[in-house]
Amino acid sequence: METATKTVWTIDPTHSEIQFKVKHLVISTVTGHFRKFEGTVETQGDDFATGSIHFEAETASVDTNQPQRDEHLRSADFFDAEQYPKMTFQSTSVEKIDDETYKVIGDLTIKGTTKSIELKAEFGGSMTDFYGNYKSGFEITGKINRKEFGLTWDAVTEAGGIVVGDEVRLALNVQIARPA
């Protein structure tokens, strides 16, 4: 029986985005990004159900389009980017649900705390770009509780409102490329 060769795909950062959304004052949502990140997906041939995913983002690259808030997020109150410069994800299983959907389970480490999380990955398709690179795209979503990862800073308004919600929604749009 012939086994498929190992393929190592790499995230194309110029065609990918790592986004998160969290409630502010429980009435609106703040969106943020990580600007510096990298990752790989190792598969047998092109079978993503055999994938092993490794991802990391630089916590100091957090960007919510508001410099004062970004500095607070980099501080020890949140990511503590000086002591914990990276957040990482390593898959432990990938399950193909249907032709376009995968369930990805893995270990997310933020601020020195590792928890197992579940993500949904929707396959957008594959195509060869203008330069001959074979690429595949995925939209990945999930939710985490920030406090489970040591991001416990809290504040209450004078009226008793919560400033930052606990639930963080993850939205990653990634394009990965395999070697020619």
Rank of each mutant, 00 (worst) to 15 (best):
A76V: 10
A60H: 04
N173Y: 09
K135S: 01
K36G: 01
K115N: 06
V174R: 01
T109S: 07
E122L: 05
E2A: 15
S28A: 15
Y131I: 00
S93Q: 13
N173H: 12
F123G: 03
T10L: 10
P85I: 12
G165F: 14
T14E: 12
D70N: 15
D107Y: 01
G165D: 05
M1I: 11
G165I: 11
E158H: 12
D47M: 13
T7D: 02
Q83V: 11
L119Y: 01
W153H: 14
D63R: 02
D107R: 13
I11Q: 00
D98R: 14
T59L: 15
D129L: 05
T50S: 15
R74C: 09
E118M: 12
V164K: 11
T109E: 12
I27V: 12
F48C: 03
T50F: 03
E100P: 03
D99T: 07
D70Y: 15
S91Y: 00
L25V: 10
T109N: 12
T64K: 06
F55G: 01
V30M: 06
K6L: 09
M1S: 15
I144N: 03
F130M: 07
K86G: 02
G161K: 14
F48P: 13
D80L: 05
F123D: 03
L25P: 05
V164P: 14
T3C: 09
Q66K: 08
M1G: 15
Q66D: 09
E148I: 06
E58S: 05
S61F: 01
A171E: 07
T59Q: 14
E95N: 12
D70A: 05
D129V: 05
F78T: 03
G39I: 02
E158N: 15
T109F: 02
I110V: 06
K36W: 01
G112I: 11
H33M: 11
G32F: 14
E58F: 06
R146S: 08
A180Y: 06
E2V: 13
R178E: 06
V163T: 11
D129F: 02
D99M: 03
T128C: 08
W153N: 03
